[in-house]
Amino acid sequence: MRWLLLFGVLFFTGCTLENVKPWQKATLAKDSFNQGACSKNYTKFQQHVYFSKEASKGGGGVAGGGCGCN
């Protein structure tokens, strides 16, 4: 039972990643991490397609700077 438990703990935690802490989110807060940040035309086109298919728009952005404060 103990060996099974030890195996289970090692197996199930082996693939887990350490959580990114709020103060480590500098890269995630960069503008380039916003959807469509690289090309405004691409974003415009994508939003046009989305609007024509879904009859709704918006909801593509995120609030805040990724610091977990909002």
Partner: peptide, 29 residues
Amino acid sequence: GEVVSKFNPVGIPAVYIIKNRKIEHMIIG
């Protein structure tokens, strides 16, 4: 992150009010 990891706030900005090394208040976000 040596100091901030000790405080380990759930988000920043984080403000701590400390008196005599004892944390009195904590304002997160």
